[in-house]
Structures are given as C-alpha cells and as structure tokens.
Amino acid sequence: MSLLVISELHAQVNDKPILKGVSLTVEVGSVHAIMGPNGSGKSTLAQVLAGNPAYEVTGGSVTYDGKDLLAMPPEERAQAGLFMAFQYPVEIPGVSNAYFLRAAYNEIRKARGEEEVDPLEFADIMEEKLALVDMESSMLTRSVNTGFSGGEKKRNEILQMAVLEPRLGILDETDSGLDIDALRVVADGVNKLKRPDNATIVVTHYQRLLNYIIPDFVHVLVSGRIAKSGGKELAFELEEKGYDWVSGSGGELAGARAS
C-alpha cells in the first residue's frame, strides 16, 4: 500500500523555485534514500513534507495515507504519524527535554483517541527509548537541544522518533556532522524502529549512512527534480562517479517510478 504519493511537487522559498516537479511513491515497509548534490532541493523536500511554513508549495500534490498532506498543518501531520528528524534541531532553552517529549507524546496519543500518560508512566517509557539511542537519562532534564553537541542533537532527534513511533520517518541529513560512532548509534536506532507497517525516507548527501541503513530504493535529486532512481547499488555508483554523472542524464528518468 502506498503510504506517500508525491506528484509533480513544486515549491519555492523566498520566491526562489527549489522543487520543480518531484514525483515519488513510498510503500509501507520500504526505505527510500534521497541523495543529491548541495542545493538540489533534498532538504526542501523534507521541510515541505513536514509542513514548514517558510516553504511555499506552488504546484503538485502529496497524498499521505490517503489524505491531502499539504492541506494539513504541521502538528496534524505529526499526529498522523509523519516525523522529520531535523538537519539542524532547534534549541529551546527553558523547556526541558522530558516535558517536551511528554507533551508531544500526549498530543499524538490524544489525536489517536488514546489516554494521556502522566510523568511517572512516561519515565518508564523513556527508559526503554533512551537505551535505543544510547542516551543518559540526564539528557531529559536538560533544555531541548540546548548546549547539546552535534551528535547529541541528532541522537535526540532519533529519541523523539523512537518515542513518537511514526509511520513515516524522514531523516534530513541526519548523518551530517556525525563521527562514525555516533553515526552507527543513530543508524542502529533507526533500524530498530523499522517495522513492516512503517516507512523511512533517508535524505543524505553521502553514501556513508546507507552502509548502515540499507535502502530499498535510491533516488537522485538534481535541480529540483528526481534525475535517477534505482536500487541500493545506485548509491555506490554515485559514490564512485559523483553527482555530475547523473546531472547530464536527468531527462528521461525524471519522476521516479512507483515502487
């Protein structure tokens, strides 16, 4: 079943067109990697899917779980099971990580018609989730992302993903700025969260992360369009030949096939 159907998506930021007709279909149970050179629109695609109001959709459609995703405000998308791990997680001094996580968890439970959990119940849930990303519980009492190292921020994103258990997880350059150990922890966490009924989109510049999170499909985004799609071997080919190799051959492959 198709969880996400992106069709001819156009988007701009500050009147500058970035996405110029992206089409992509994601089935449940699959992992898609979106690769591409800097400025190709990878992060824009992630932000648009998450509903960042700084990005303006100028054409096309996105259907998520049968619903018009673009008509939903960001919080409803999250409540419906969409999650984006930020490339640059935002620091929020003054709000503790625990409070933030529990608020998010409860909002999502509320949206699903489930009962909210109190701080004690939540502490039990957290214990298991923290282990998944190898984080100390002391991270929970600190303000959201405030003073976190780059690796801690990324792990905190995966922690949130583990708590919120999304149906569609989008990792926006989660590997950038991570050393190999942190990368392994993060990838490990993502792999453990993989289930037959959810899906993951991994946005990355480098093939490196895909050694740890094995994609079913790889798409290459160039100048706001998908220039090439293929299996996991495409990532290795890109690593070897560079993005210039695809840039010239974009035309006939634009618009990934439905998988």
Binding site: E75, A78, A104
Partner: peptide, 16 residues
C-alpha cells in the same frame, strides 16, 4: 518561528 515549527512538527498544536 523556527522553534514554533519545531514544536508543531512534533504534534504539539499551535496554542500549546
């Protein structure tokens, strides 16, 4: 606005 979007992207509604 960046912080607001961050919170909303985690399912927290605008008012909260």
């Amino acid at each position: 606005q960046a912080a607001l979007f961050y919170l909303k992207s985690r399912g927290i509604d605008n008012a909260l």
